[in-house]
Simulated assay, not measured.
Amino acid sequence: MKRIIIYFSLFFSVSFYGQNDFILTIKGIDASKPIKFKKEALKNAVIEFKDNKLIKFNIIGFKIKIPGVQAEEIKGNKIDERIYNKIFRIVSKGDIIVISDIKTNTFIEEKGPYPDPMFPIVIEIF
């Protein structure tokens, strides 16, 4: 049931906000659909964009929700050592980690700052 709700929320957020000219990635993998990772693969994982040349993105923070633990806010675009250690200790096979509330510092040439809604990243541990 938990997976169904997460998949539905991901689908709704992508379809509601529409297609963009950029791709949100984690460790270089397209994050527009649920991703399967081993928990070891999340060590120093970087969240970034592959974008067109007109838009420049910098991720300045995000929230990460680990099962059984309150969501934590992270500054920057990387899963740091402290969060990775929590993931390694707490998460088991089949658990889902959600990275949401991704904050960007976005600039479109000649138009200034542009707040862009980001869809959540859903990671299933296998």
Rank of each mutant, 00 (worst) to 15 (best):
V98H: 08
S100Y: 15
I55M: 09
M1W: 06
P34M: 04
I99W: 01
K65C: 08
N52Y: 07
F62Q: 00
I55A: 06
G94L: 10
G68E: 08
F16Q: 07
N105W: 08
K65T: 15
I108N: 07
I59M: 00
I125A: 05
I96D: 10
A41C: 08
R3C: 07
Y84T: 08
S32D: 15
A45H: 01
F11M: 09
F22N: 12
K43N: 12
G61E: 00
K65M: 11
I99T: 02
I6F: 09
K43H: 07
V91T: 14
F37G: 01
I59V: 06
I47L: 03
K111E: 14
I29A: 12
I108F: 13
E73I: 06
V69H: 11
G28L: 01
A41P: 00
K36P: 03
I125C: 06
K2M: 11
G76C: 02
G112E: 06
N105K: 15
I23D: 10
K43G: 03
G28R: 03
G94W: 12
K86V: 10
I64Q: 04
S92M: 09
I108H: 10
I59T: 02
I66V: 13
F107A: 11
S32M: 11
Y17H: 14
I4L: 14
E73A: 07
D51P: 07
F11Y: 10
Y17A: 08
E73S: 14
N44H: 05
I108W: 10
R3F: 11
E72V: 15
F12Q: 07
I60C: 00
K86T: 13
K111S: 12
G28W: 03
K38W: 05
I66E: 02
L42C: 02
F8W: 04
T104E: 04
F37Y: 09
K50L: 12
